[in-house]
């Protein structure tokens, strides 16, 4: 459990740094639109988490019920691309500064990477309870 504790601490630091970047990109230029990026990246794993309970297991082989799982993956990747595209679009039309765009993308990537790494690191213990 010591390794798990270290992982949790590291991931929480990365998450905090990601949110710091996003909030800094908003606060430095007094334009709070990049805060949407944090909201989008927090919402990104939600469809996968919801729709993964609708489908079958990975090893049962019932591909007929894989439609909701595919829908969840589709929506998840749509949201992730939206999170990266929104600051670029905003910076392109000069609503936000390019520096704010870069910082919010970096922060959003850190937040989403934290979520992915957390779910990948603690998947093993979840499957033990099944």
């Amino acid at each position: 459990m010591a390794a798990g504790l270290k992982t949790v601490i590291l991931l929480s630091f990365v998450l905090a740094v990601g949110f710091l970047m996003i909030i800094l990109s908003c606060a430095l230029w007094h334009n709070w639109l990049p805060l949407l990026v944090a909201l989008i990246f927090v919402l990104a794993p939600l469809p996968n988490a919801l729709f993964s309970h609708c489908g079958a297991d990975d090893f049962s082989g019932h591909y007929d019920s894989a439609g909701p799982v595919d829908l969840g993956r589709f929506i998840t990747s749509m949201i992730v691309v939206t999170g990266f595209a929104l600051p670029i679009v905003l910076a392109h039309s000069e609503v936000i500064r390019p520096a704010a765009c870069a910082m919010s993308i970096l922060g959003g990537g850190l937040v989403y990477g934290t979520i992915l790494a957390y779910s990948a690191a603690f998947k093993q213990e979840e499957s033990d309870y099944d």
């Binding site: 993956r73 691309v81 939206t82 595209a85 392109h92 039309s93």
Partner: peptide, 17 residues
């Protein structure tokens, strides 16, 4: 499926841009 979703969002964001 992931690539298709990414392409879908990219398409719409290109035009929205």
């Amino acid at each position: 499926v992931y690539i298709a979703g990414a392409l879908f969002a990219l398409a719409n964001w290109t035009f929205l841009d």
